[in-house]
Amino acid sequence: MSDYKQSCIILDKPSGISSNQALSKVKKKISQKKAGFSGTLDPLASGLLIIFFNKATKLCSYFLNADKSYEAIAILGKTSTTGDLDGDILSSNNIPDLKKLDISMLEKKYTGIIKQTPPMYSAIKHKGVRLYKYAREGINIDLPPREIEIFSIKINIIDNSQLFIKVRCSKGTYIRTLVEQIGIDIGCGALVSKLVRTGINDINISKSVGLENFLSSSDEEICKKYIINGDLLLSKTSTCFVSDLNKEQILKGNKVKIKSEPCELIRIYDKDKNFLGIGKINEELELLPKKILV
């Protein structure tokens, strides 16, 4: 495992640093040059950040497009330039009596497919430039709203000025924007004071290692406790094994006939149980390699 060819780390990024800063610290600790992660977390946000090394970086897009779970604390009565406490406060408003708030109505409104306009302080690119770079220059880009999906949302009142919000959602969902939308509906505005990404697909934050814990561990501890092979992140995905002849074709990117049911995503192994990558089995029972990791 020490060559990190197909390796990953399930990291719990702390609040206060960017995803790229966390990535740089991890790369430096284990002396790796090629690495990527599964979706940017804002500096204020903490939680799951899966880091992929070398060949495993080919899996980044799969997890970038995966469903995510979050827990957030919203402060009511305030809005900011960034939608969270990291920005400049734009307004302070009176908060209505939350005892009269119809929580179930809000939850119903924000369940299913909804539209969101991406915030200016985000990593989305416009004409090749990140939106947050425009925002820092005081330039506002008029972006069209995008459809995202909220699979589940639970809102609880913490006190007379704060809400706890738990969300499972599709890729491209901005929790800061969701909180702002909820604040508008309540009639006082809102911003995020705390945000934790708790899940990516079926990977839970309970499986993660904190950044400081990781950085203070020995190389032996890291390899034994925290480094995992990329295929283990897909433990609930179907599996197939290929012969040496088919392996040769798969490694060339060629499709092969296989005795298995059609499947949109499948893990591919050789007869010695070495992970080769992921693929798809079509209706003609052909195995089509998508991402080869060897």
Results as ranks from 00 to 15, higher is better:
residue 183 G to P: 01
residue 248 E to Q: 15
residue 242 V to K: 15
residue 164 F to E: 03
residue 201 N to C: 14
residue 231 D to E: 15
residue 226 Y to N: 13
residue 259 K to T: 12
residue 177 T to N: 03
residue 265 L to A: 09
residue 196 V to P: 00
residue 217 S to Q: 12
residue 182 I to F: 07
residue 256 V to L: 09
residue 202 D to M: 11
residue 273 K to P: 02
residue 265 L to M: 14
residue 190 A to F: 02
residue 241 F to A: 05
residue 259 K to G: 06
residue 245 L to F: 14
residue 219 D to R: 13
residue 248 E to K: 15
residue 269 Y to N: 08
residue 256 V to Y: 09
residue 214 F to Y: 15
residue 265 L to T: 08
residue 245 L to T: 10
residue 180 E to L: 00
residue 223 C to M: 13
residue 154 K to C: 09
residue 157 I to L: 06
residue 273 K to Y: 07
residue 206 S to V: 13
residue 158 I to R: 03
residue 263 C to A: 08
residue 210 G to C: 07
residue 230 G to T: 11
residue 167 V to Q: 05
residue 159 D to I: 00
residue 258 I to N: 09
residue 275 F to Y: 12
residue 269 Y to E: 09
residue 241 F to V: 03
residue 236 K to T: 14
residue 193 S to A: 03
residue 162 Q to E: 04
residue 168 R to E: 04
residue 195 L to F: 11
residue 205 I to C: 03
residue 209 V to Q: 08
residue 224 K to H: 12
residue 239 T to C: 14
residue 255 K to D: 12
residue 216 S to W: 05
residue 247 K to E: 14
residue 199 G to E: 08
residue 164 F to M: 03
residue 264 E to T: 06
residue 150 I to E: 05
residue 187 G to Q: 04
residue 214 F to Q: 13
residue 243 S to W: 10
residue 186 I to P: 01
residue 168 R to P: 00
residue 250 I to M: 04
residue 186 I to C: 01
residue 195 L to I: 10
residue 175 I to E: 01
residue 251 L to Y: 07
residue 253 G to C: 06
residue 211 L to W: 12
residue 156 N to V: 00
residue 236 K to P: 08
residue 238 S to D: 15
residue 258 I to H: 06
residue 257 K to H: 12
residue 244 D to V: 09
residue 265 L to N: 08
residue 179 V to P: 04
residue 255 K to G: 10
residue 188 C to W: 01
residue 238 S to L: 15
residue 195 L to Q: 09
residue 275 F to C: 09
residue 185 D to R: 04
residue 166 K to I: 03
residue 185 D to T: 05
residue 234 L to Q: 10
residue 271 K to H: 05
residue 190 A to G: 03
residue 225 K to G: 07
residue 231 D to H: 14
residue 279 G to T: 08
residue 172 G to E: 05
residue 155 I to G: 01
residue 246 N to W: 08
residue 270 D to V: 05
residue 177 T to A: 10
residue 192 V to D: 03
residue 223 C to D: 14
residue 252 K to C: 14
residue 206 S to P: 03
residue 188 C to M: 01
residue 241 F to E: 05
residue 274 N to F: 04
residue 218 S to F: 13
